[in-house]
Design a protein around this nucleic acid. Structure first.
Lengths: 135, 135
DNA sequence: ATATTCTTGCAACATTGTTGCATTTGATTT
DNA sequence: AAATCAAATGCAACAATGTTGCAAGAATAT
């Protein structure tokens, strides 16, 4: 789908920054960080604009945020077609890439008495397929 | 076990900051953030000292760090007796407390071809037992 | 084309974490 | 008990990440 249509369908104005973010993540097919996006995007947008665009796109469930450890923040497209919420994420410690593991549903484990589960997040760390070959 | 013995057993010098961190987490029985620890600890330590103490204690596997979303960082004692690595963590969206779910082992899901798993992290979010009662 | 609402860029600020360096402290040895 | 040496501390400076208020600018609908 085209970025402009995605925006329109969510009642969001189409702006260069939003369109750029969406199309870059679409092209890449992998979660990208703010810096990776800014570096590849022409049209120099202010950092504030980026943060607000990310926020808006998240609120509209167009993208979702993935945080690895503390500081590494990546954004990925929400697969609204297949609606796979709460999938696991893979972080490669070699190349620092992040992959959405749509095929890996997160098992909600049996919880102790009295706990209610609303959401789960799972990060699996290791070596990705590409780095496994090249090492 | 007493904090000073823990430090000695790991070949670490006993300092007020390290002892304080360990005994506060021990007393509390729950993961604590840097701020929670600093507020309850007497002896005003520099923030740098805190960060370096946390780092040292982590490297010696006395405590481990838990990160929720971006910014909420908590530290918990490593249960070196039962050696339960890779347990799940529960974050209560009501009271912002974090609990180590030692009884909930993290299932490593079946991975796509070529991926090697080294480590897993799982955060389960929802309502904790205490907040369930009071609401 | 115009009006309205939303978005942008800028400046300022807050939080979290790191690094270098001089000083102090803890553990060890004499 | 005093001297020694390595390690820990406090301070200042800095870097990265994120937020807020506000004036100016753009995108949609009429």
């Amino acid at each position: 789908m085209e970025p402009q249509k995605v925006l329109h369908d969510h009642n969001l104005k189409r702006t260069g920054c939003r369109e750029g973010i969406i199309s870059l993540i679409m092209e890449e097919g992998q979660p990208l960080s703010e810096n990776e996006i800014r570096d590849r995007l022409d049209g120099n947008f202010d950092r504030t604009t980026f943060y607000r665009s990310f926020k808006t796109l998240q609120e509209s469930k167009i993208i979702h945020k993935i945080v690895v450890d503390n500081q590494l923040v990546k954004y990925a497209l929400d697969n609204s077609l297949s609606k796979k919420r709460d999938h696991a994420h893979f972080y490669c410690e070699e190349c620092s890439s992040v992959r959405c593991l749509d095929s890996v549903p997160v098992e909600i484990p049996a919880m102790p008495e009295g706990f209610t589960v609303w959401e789960t997040e799972m990060i699996i760390k290791g070596l990705c397929d590409k780095c496994a070959i090249s090492s």
